[in-house]
Amino acid sequence: MTEPGGAQDDELLWLMMNGDEEAFAALYRRWQGGIYRFALQMSGSPSAAEDVTQEVFLTLMRDARNYDPGRGSLGAYLYGIARNQVLRWLERGRADVPLSGAPEDGEEAGLPASADNPLGDLTRQETVEAVRRAVLALPPHYREAVVLCDLEEMDYAAAAEVLECSVGTVRSRLHRARGLLLEKLRVSAEKEASLRKLNPARCLI
């Protein structure tokens, strides 16, 4: 895991537990970005991501004594809380429609096209949206492997700490998830292509 200043986390945590608000704020600023993105990529909902982020740090505030450095890093502990919150949110069936950002000016050219590349004909923005939709359509246990390993760029060991499973399980889930992602992207690319082939009907009235 990309852990910013791991040695300092324990010190900040100790200060926070002794009532130091600035230490708490420093921990928050250090970790909130990753936690928020993780929740957003898992849920597709900015409001859910905001709630999850808030709940993660409220839990840290209330139950910091439950954190055991011997069992893993503070980052893994925080991501673990976020994961539980997100899974609970998903179980409640409140998944929103995936976000669709507005096209940006000066979009970059799409990825190189080929028959085996379902993203080849898309612009960068379309690629981002297609991949985002495909990730959100994955089952949660595959989605979290992709989000942690490919989007948050955690190594397998750190992801295994968060997901509370073995490194081998993370690896196999990621491989399976990437296979599913390619299938989904291929299907959606075919649908797009068939829609483009249709000629628009003219209205004569």
Partner: peptide, 29 residues
């Protein structure tokens, strides 16, 4: 296919790299 997927995932990660929780969350906390 796998290389294209990696590029797509990198693009998605890059598009969200600056995403952060709104400032009101820190204030509330």
């Amino acid at each position: 296919g796998q290389r294209a997927l990696s590029a797509g995932l990198r693009a998605l990660a890059g598009s969200m790299a600056e995403q952060q929780a709104p400032g009101r969350v820190e204030s509330a906390l």
